[in-house]
Design a protein around this nucleic acid. Sequence first.
DNA 1: GATGAATGAGGGTTCATTCAT
DNA 2: TATGAATGAACCCTCATTCAT
Lengths: 210, 210, 210, 210
Amino acid sequence: MNKNAKEAIVKAAISLFNSNGYSGTSIRDIASLANVNPAAIAYHFKNKTGLLEYCFMHFFEQYISKIEDAYAFIDRGAKECLKRIAADLLFYQSEHIQLTSFVYREMSIESQVVREIMSTYSLKEKYYFQKIFERGFEWNEFRPHSIPYLIIQLKGLLMMPFMNTRYMREVLYVFPNEPFFQQKYLKEIHLWIDKTLCSDVPIKKGAVIK
Amino acid sequence: MNKNAKEAIVKAAISLFNSNGYSGTSIRDIASLANVNPAAIAYHFKNKTGLLEYCFMHFFEQYISKIEDAYAFIDRGAKECLKRIAADLLFYQSEHIQLTSFVYREMSIESQVVREIMSTYSLKEKYYFQKIFERGFEWNEFRPHSIPYLIIQLKGLLMMPFMNTRYMREVLYVFPNEPFFQQKYLKEIHLWIDKTLCSDVPIKKGAVIK
Amino acid sequence: MNKNAKEAIVKAAISLFNSNGYSGTSIRDIASLANVNPAAIAYHFKNKTGLLEYCFMHFFEQYISKIEDAYAFIDRGAKECLKRIAADLLFYQSEHIQLTSFVYREMSIESQVVREIMSTYSLKEKYYFQKIFERGFEWNEFRPHSIPYLIIQLKGLLMMPFMNTRYMREVLYVFPNEPFFQQKYLKEIHLWIDKTLCSDVPIKKGAVIK
Amino acid sequence: MNKNAKEAIVKAAISLFNSNGYSGTSIRDIASLANVNPAAIAYHFKNKTGLLEYCFMHFFEQYISKIEDAYAFIDRGAKECLKRIAADLLFYQSEHIQLTSFVYREMSIESQVVREIMSTYSLKEKYYFQKIFERGFEWNEFRPHSIPYLIIQLKGLLMMPFMNTRYMREVLYVFPNEPFFQQKYLKEIHLWIDKTLCSDVPIKKGAVIK
DNA sequence: GATGAATGAGGGTTCATTCAT
DNA sequence: TATGAATGAACCCTCATTCAT
């Protein structure tokens, strides 16, 4: 029952954190949804903070590993590699849509714990994206460009569908957790990579936009 | 001191909501930052919810009016119109970076009030985007495409810099509130419009991506 | 507007004090029901306490004056006098049913103000009842009896219909504010006076129950 | 300390509710009088309302059971039965004088909770009184009479000594919690039953006062 | 390992009241 | 005279957490 309890707690926490936000969710709510005694949460995670930490670690470890795994194939080309990352992240996020949504939201809140966790993973992520883009520039796969601005755009495209799933469903009638969406949206990102990132439009020579 | 108090409360609220989230911010925190009595908040806004409502309305009324104003020039071309909207929204968001950041985050939390406010503005926004895209398709300015997926991408590009400003500053060394950024990033969006949205690459005939 | 405002406040106060109790009623509630600014109550009555005081004084001055007026006719007989008091009080209470109900309830709450007001009127009331009963004993109109216990019974009979008017209406289907009730119930009290108070059953001689 | 805490809270609550009224008593007051943490009240009773509910239930369950127990002996005669009820209720009320006093006062305040509780018990009580009176009429023990008006009188006599104990003590020098009072006052009620209720005075034939 | 009792801090809100206008 | 703004205290309640069992 031990393992089950812990899993049930995490599952309940993710669901409630996603709906009501971290601060808006009480330990009691989580415990009652998980059919667990409130003290059990303290036992397994020490803290409410500990539970948050666990969720973040859980998310970002897998998140980064997707990037790392794909980066192993960088020699097949930066473009190919980037497309694979897009596919893998899209798939991963779709599979853990509540966790993704909640992590992306809570990420922007001032918090000792979050800041510490993020500092590691953000840098790792940036490192890989940077490598890939640089490789793409070198081999003339990508149009020369400011890397930070590329990262913003890429992450914007990748995160957007999961930032507000209610909006997606109720306003745009798009369902980010369905395979259909994943395939469809992946093509959009490919299009961005092909058209905007790799665009062969002649740029003034040497003009690497900083 | 009347007007000042209300303004001071709103200013403090936006700052704290942005840093700590709505649920993570107490009325007492706001009051003490605004140098105001906690009861004054209840007096001016009735509720903590009322304060949130005020912030949302304040944001979205201006947000929508930017779109509406730009839409008036639709006859000069959908592309031109869209670029103007991008510029205006980017500028508006940069000018109210904390409010923007906090609204975009809190938007995704389950809440009666937020849901009600959003339902109005989301539909308005969608309406205008839809009109513009349709016009663009008609006049062959834009490559035929699924509108919802275009909206996702456009909004992703527009919102991303303001979703996590700490990440922007500390990881990417990008400062979304500076005029330099606005100009720079606007060009990126123009690029997306020119390359991805208007791309003249021959599409398989009649292939309107659903 | 001055006089009207004061009257409106009192009227609203009596209604709300009756429904929700003194402590359960806020000055704002009263003000809004009376269509008056909350500060106006402070102006007219200085305090919430002052308003309570006013209600009590208002009630008991008339209450005692009814007794005093009837007592003037003590020479026509104690029984006659008592019946007149019963009739007058019953009528007065029926006419001011909300005020009566609320005063009788609030009377039993520990409060400096109430205690002070009551100490005067309770003693006055007791004085008259005592005089009447003693006169009744002297002239052999009433069966000798302990005066305090008579007062309890008499007051019990007089107050009961107004102590919980909802119970009267909804459970017993009796409506203490209607003339029909007054006449009917007055006969009951007369019966008590005639049968229980004046009962000629031979009592052991000299046995004045203490 | 479990059971003790709950009991201590109830005891303190009854005392304070009696002195200051329900609305006039704060949870902190109760907690500090009971030497308990304020949150413990919420733990044991969920609400301040829950505490009130508990007091009411506690009172009326015993109250009704006294009536029910006595009603079991209805076959010994309605008069006998009524006298027994009077005795038992008087004794019960004397023993729980503060609770009785406070319940009788708060009963008349507009409140969802009180209304719901009362609706049950009032009807039960009425049912038994009605049965007894009807039986008394049938067997010619009681003079025919309107039942609601009899209930008013009986309840008035039974409740009066506990409606305002300060008045009893300080004005009438009567102490409703002392055995002496119980015996004395019980005789008064017997007198009412014998003289007013059972009065053999010839009534106009068939005249059942409605 | 798991739980019910208890705690102190702090949550949002309402209160009666005051004061400048 | 009458009122809108503002205040500080107190309201009830919920919080995350601890601890003995």
